[in-house]
């Protein structure tokens, strides 16, 4: 087996992120993983203990037709309900650990040596349940969007976009996640980015109370934005309500403008 230097380098980077994750999450409250109807092995592996296998098999398949009561005009139900996912912890330590883990993820997986499959493998290993939506056309090629179904506590809406260039090489164009709103959320996100990107020794290109941006190199930027009401409107991927004002988004992006 041939181990190139870059391969070992990639491995070491991921080891670092993994160690960070393990060290910061050993005492944190983890949300119960979600399960979905997609795939089987992974879902069964992550299935909460209070949901027996047989109940999954009772869920409707597309062709089996629905029961009456879940659809319109259901009036009577003999039902019981219970949360599958634990409520969010208010423990600041756990949420900060998640924030640091996700900024480290942005730092590690925005390096050119690290690819899409490395990212999804890492997200799987940290039980974030990644999904990849691939769409391609004959003209502008393939775009892969990576999202997660089970974000770390205090974070959400992880989103990465990868494209293929003229030589069929995949590259990252955008990677971001959101951090829970709070009085100090912006400052905590800025601190986490400084920690995860040690090369950020220069002053930020933009430094305002609600937006901070650095150039990582000639091709990429990293920014942190405290989202205002206008930022929450018409997002094609994420759902918001007015309660989400103040959410902080952290992004690494190709310098495209």
């Amino acid at each position: 087996m041939h181990f190139s230097k870059s391969f070992v380098f990639v491995g070491m980077i991921v080891v670092g992120v993994t160690l960070l994750y393990l060290s910061t999450h050993k005492n944190s409250v983890r949300p119960a993983p979600r399960h979905s109807t997609h795939g089987s092995k992974g879902n069964l592996h992550h299935r909460p203990a209070d949901l027996p296998t047989s109940s999954l098999s009772k869920q409707h398949s597309e062709g089996s037709g629905p029961t009456e009561s879940i659809f319109q005009n259901s009036s009577t139900m003999n039902s019981s309900s219970a949360p599958v996912r634990a409520p969010a912890s208010t423990a600041d330590g756990a949420e900060i650990a998640s924030l640091e883990s996700m900024t480290a993820t942005l730092s590690t997986f925005s390096r050119p040596e690290v690819g899409l499959s490395d990212l999804t493998a890492f997200l799987s290993s940290t039980t974030q349940k990644p999904l990849v939506a691939k769409q391609s056309n004959p003209d502008t090629g393939e775009m892969s969007i990576v999202r997660t179904d089970n974000p770390l506590l205090g974070t959400r809406y992880f989103h990465a976009q990868y494209f293929k260039d003229e030589s069929d090489q995949t590259f990252l164009q955008h990677m971001s996640f959101e951090f829970k709103p709070g009085e100090s959320a912006m400052a905590e996100a800025v601190a986490a980015v400084r920690k995860a990107f040690p090369s950020l020794t220069n002053p930020p290109l933009v430094n305002s109370p609600s937006f901070v941006k650095w150039a990582l190199d000639e091709k990429y930027i990293v920014w942190i934005k405290k989202l205002e009401a206008a930022d929450l409107r018409d997002n094609p991927f994420n759902a918001y309500t007015s309660n989400d004002v103040g959410t902080v988004r952290v992004a690494v992006e190709a310098e495209i403008h």
Binding site: R34, S36, T67, S79, S81, P83, V84, P87, A88, P151
Partner: peptide
Amino acid sequence: AKVVQSFGQDQQEKTIDGVKYVFIKVQ
């Protein structure tokens, strides 16, 4: 539809007519 991630509880389950469903938050 858009699937909601709300920093909190985004799933519940409920048994309806003997069938257990997982409910998610959707916009």
